[in-house]
Design a protein around this nucleic acid. Structure first.
Lengths: 252, 252
DNA sequence: GTAGAGGTTGACGCTACGTCAAGGTCAAGG
DNA sequence: CCTTGACCTTGACGTAGCGTCAACCTCTAC
């Protein structure tokens, strides 16, 4: 019962490189080392190796296996906590699969998630869950079907308009004028006008709290960096927010 | 629309280190680099970054993301093949979880999988599925309950006997005698005698194909390195097989 | 002038080995 | 004795995606 490194590797169904690695990290030392440096393994070593490989197949890490072999940890305990980890992983995978499916579906059905390209700046339909949470399911459904119903040409026009509005905001903010300046207030007017083009938003009709909606939106631009980014970051968004609030209080 | 590396990192919800990494591997270059080496990012860069992070959350690797961004691969196609991979992973995890559960159960109920320690050499109950496949469920159930019913002392005795038999085989094989020598044939007799002590094995009673069983077992010792290991590897197992075949033909 | 905040480029660390590379050892054969 | 070939050895790099120092600029503010 004395095998060379190749022999025991074949017997146990692994490679000599693996055995050298286990030797390096102290997981499994050869039972004997020849004067020429050759590694030799005996029966007990083979048993150890097989236990290692068994645990490895179950997904345990080498440090965890070492603990088990050194009696520092009960095998059952090690496997149990490993099982917890596996369950978590499975959960994560399940959720990730759902996300990928969802993404594929929406990209196939329409370029909703491609909105980063098409909608560019502000996209109420881009963040489905959040829109629903903030303004209700109806608002989302309305703007969603509205967007789906547009032709590619119309979408492009809309996109251009959004981009123009965004860049105007940024240049205005950077010009140093105050949010209550005529320029800023004119932009605020354009902004509200633009918003009114999106179905599902409150209107001036009875019961529609346009004022609260617009000011709330401004706060969100500042609070959410994804929106803030469209207006030149936090400082730009702050400018937009202030301008919108002033406009809302004076005109809505 | 011009952010420093920290700013855009915060906006996009990642770290500056990540952005530097993406720059290094060419996934996302800064839109501008200052005379001082500082990285600066603009709006389009932010959009790219957000797409990258979205795909990353879905689990795509950076090379795959790069392909998508470079229009080399359709996003839907990339996500679909990624989905396949995810499904495989989930499968693997599910099977692994089952294995771990099984192992924990058997280790709790009795040290069946600990058999590597206790049974040492030959353990028909160690490889449940294979035993069942080769010799039927009855054989497994019989030898299993038999083993469970033994006291620790009896188990130890059995273990010693197995080990003695194994080492005798090895030393005999290494001594250079032929498989039909008296010594080898005596060992074969002991081996068959030993086998007959395990419930579930064929007997000399009518209908029991002891001869076929013994020769088949010998073949398995050679074919399966896990068993071969108990007899000094493939060469040793070959010797055992030959001796057993000769013994079976002459005596069974 | 000097903090202090933020930027830069290395370079190591992590998981578990695969994969060369360069060079000894050993048994068999010319 | 020399060669061949199979097998052994010790490095050391590569892998995926950054985290985490380390050592050293740069710019603003007091």
């Amino acid at each position: 019962m004395d095998w060379s490194i190749q022999e025991i590797a074949k017997i146990a169904g692994t490679t000599s490189r693996t055995l050298r690695h286990y030797d390096d990290i102290g997981l499994l030392k050869p039972s004997r080392t020849g004067h020429n440096g050759y590694r030799h393994y005996d029966g007990p070593a083979l048993v150890q190796l097989q236990r290692i490989l068994l645990l490895r197949e179950l997904g345990l890490g080498l440090p965890a296996i070492a603990e088990v072999l050194n009696r520092e940890t009960d095998t059952v305990k090690a496997l149990s906590s490993h099982l917890d980890w596996l369950a978590q992983e499975q959960d994560r995978l399940t959720r990730q699969i759902a996300s990928v499916r969802q993404t594929i579906d929406t990209m196939k059905g329409d370029g909703k998630y491609m909105a980063q390209d098409m909608f560019d700046g502000f996209d109420h339909t881009q963040y489905k869950d959040e829109v629903e949470e903030r303004w209700g399911k109806d608002a989302y459904a309305a703007s969603d079907s509205w967007w789906r119903g547009m032709s590619a040409d119309e979408k492009q026009q809309w996109k251009d308009r959004v981009q123009k509005l965004g860049s105007d905001w940024i240049s205005t903010a950077e010009s140093g004028v105050s949010p209550d300046s005529d320029e800023a207030q004119d932009l605020a007017r354009r902004h509200v006008e633009w918003l009114s083009g999106i179905p599902g938003t409150p209107t001036a009709a009875p019961g529609g709290d346009v004022k609260g909606y617009v000011t709330g939106l401004g706060e969100m631009y500042v609070a959410d960096p994804r929106f803030a980014a469209n207006y030149g970051g936090e400082s730009g968004a702050t400018f937009v927010r202030d301008a919108l609030r002033i406009y809302a209080e004076q005109n809505l």
